[in-house]
């Protein structure tokens, strides 16, 4: 915990499982597994298209109507620089709250709910700036590596010139 500066929205809520554990929603992009803290997740819905937004970066897939409010959808694969996802009905949008905003993240599939120990969260190895920019930390679960997504970083820089 000391070694890691988790964002406020990650750290100030304690998962039901106990003081020192964290519950994650795990989802996959290709072979990789990533996770976000379960308390930030508002809703999981199947991909049903989005209205594209002009003059935005390729990882902004557009906006959807979530019960009357307009929510932007970010393509996590594109955000990691692996090109746009070609979504099907089997793809999933995870709607999360980041600060006071709601955003959707397009992922391949939601795989699991994980309970991990905060002490088991490792720093992201220095090296690729995309990794350190977009991940808060790495945790091992059943010998799989799970990258903890930094939501604030993911949704920033959406504008063409931004």
């Amino acid at each position: 915990m000391e070694a890691l500066s988790l964002r406020d929205d990650m750290s100030d809520k304690t998962a039901a499982a106990g003081q020192n554990t964290l519950q994650l929603i795990a989802f996959s992009i290709g072979e990789q597994t990533y996770g976000v803290e379960i308390t930030t997740v508002r809703e999981i819905r199947a991909w049903n298209g989005a209205t594209p937004l002009p003059n935005t970066r390729e990882f902004v897939r557009g906006v959807i109507n979530l019960r009357g409010t307009i929510v932007p959808i970010f393509d996590l694969r594109a955000r990691f620089g692996d090109g746009q996802t070609s979504p099907t009905k089997n793809h999933v949008v995870v709607v999360m709250s980041v600060g006071d905003k709601w955003v959707g993240i397009l992922v391949d599939a939601v795989s699991d709910i994980l309970t991990v120990n905060r002490d088991d969260i490792h720093n992201v190895p220095e090296g690729n700036s995309i990794d350190t920019e977009l991940l808060n930390g790495i945790v091992t679960h059943e010998s799989r590596m799970v990258g903890l997504i930094d939501l604030h970083a993911v949704v920033s820089g959406a504008k063409m010139d931004g």
Partner: peptide, 20 residues
């Protein structure tokens, strides 16, 4: 409200079919 202003776009609206 959930995103940021986009050039050339004044806002959004929801159509009868639920799309934006």
């Amino acid at each position: 409200e959930n995103f940021e202003s986009v050039e050339g776009i004044a806002g959004g609206t929801i159509l009868g079919d639920g799309n934006v």
